[in-house]
């Protein structure tokens, strides 16, 4: 059974948990796409980010029940991912990254087909297709053939096809891929409205970290098949307070070692004369300048680390790559 059979309290607790994965792995022959992924996420809007080949698509396909994990277990929307593939898909709306069009079909037929395939009766699917096409702003274009849709409208159409059966969870794979800035903005606005109005959960799989920052409250950073970091975006970016990106001249000085002995932390050093540092709690920026002066070092640039997701991501993936190479 997909729904929990015990008491109401348990149901409430479970309903908050969107997905819970335990040591999930998946390999394709020699290629290890996912390694021992353990992840617990609550309902809401979640960004799934990672480089190409990080395992995002594999994770999405496992969540959809299209691919069984090689090992490990997990639940999504309270359903076991190993056993409830078809039932589970009825509760999820998936928008693929690829064009995924059916030649010669009209927009409304495409969305109705999606409803049919989700198990809706033909008439209901057709009626809902009209409704969701109006909702995503394609009401006027519904009788056009798919090859006449622009890239932006095609993305909206695919969103409509994912929404047609009113799913609890939306899995969107690169929804703003290939859109011009105006189209991207318009798509994001549509998604924001949708989430605000319906309260649906959303997993947004994308390379565009700005989109995740704007849309999501939680993020999962995948790197080389493992979870590099996951959690609320706000918490991750809050941790950036009192951090600075510092560039200096005279690399021969003992500036960094004295900084460390004063209680500071060097988070990341990309070059000999530049680093990302976290100041001791009681320090302010001027104390860093004072320390540099004592060491005979000239700070050429000091920039508050307004850590956005992009910088966090770059650091996480760079660190991980270095660690792996080591």
């Amino acid at each position: 059974m997909c729904k929990p059979s015990s008491n109401q309290t348990k149901w409430k607790v479970l309903s908050l948990v969107l997905l819970d994965l335990q040591n999930l792995s998946r390999h394709f022959g020699q290629v290890q796409a996912l390694r021992e992924v353990t992840l617990r996420l609550e309902t809401g809007t979640i960004g799934l980010v990672g480089n190409n080949g990080a395992g995002k698509s594999t994770l999405l396909k496992i969540l959809l029940g299209l691919l069984p994990p090689s090992s490990g277990s997990g639940t999504i929307l309270g359903c076991d991912i190993r056993q409830t593939g078809l039932k589970l898909r009825g509760r999820i709306g998936y928008m693929p990254e690829a064009a995924a069009t059916v030649p010669l079909l009209k927009g409304v037929e495409y969305v109705a087909l999606s409803g049919d395939l989700y198990g809706m009766p033909f008439r209901d699917a057709r009626r809902r297709a009209h409704e969701v096409l109006n909702y995503v702003g394609l009401g006027e274009l519904r009788y056009r053939r798919l090859d006449e849709y622009s890239a932006g409208n095609l993305q909206r159409l695919k969103l409509a096809a994912a929404l047609v059966h009113d799913p609890e969870l939306l899995l969107l794979d690169e929804p703003t891929n290939g859109l011009d800035p105006a189209g991207r903005l318009s798509m994001l606005r549509l998604l924001e409205d949708l989430i605000a109005e319906t309260g649906k959960s959303l997993i947004l799989c994308t390379h565009l970290l700005k989109d995740v920052e704007r849309m999501c409250t939680q993020v999962v950073v995948l790197h080389q098949g493992t979870i590099a970091k996951s959690g609320p975006i706000e918490e991750m970016t809050r941790a950036a307070e009192n951090r600075y990106e510092v560039h200096w001249r005279d690399a021969s000085s003992d500036f960094l070692s004295r900084f460390r002995s004063s209680g500071g932390t060097v988070l990341h050093q990309s070059e000999l004369s530049e680093a990302l540092v976290a100041l001791p709690e009681t320090w302010q920026a001027k104390q860093l300048f004072e320390l540099a002066a004592q060491c005979g070092t000239v700070i050429t640039r000091l920039r508050e680390d307004d850590d956005d997701l992009e910088r966090l991501f770059m650091r996480l993936t760079a660190k991980e790559t270095k660690g792996t190479q080591d």
Partner: peptide, 22 residues
Amino acid sequence: SLLVGSDFRQRTLPFYLSRRIA
């Protein structure tokens, strides 16, 4: 090509198979 080939070319298979069908 129209009935089957295009599903592979345009990667429509995930569209079909991510719905409630096997």
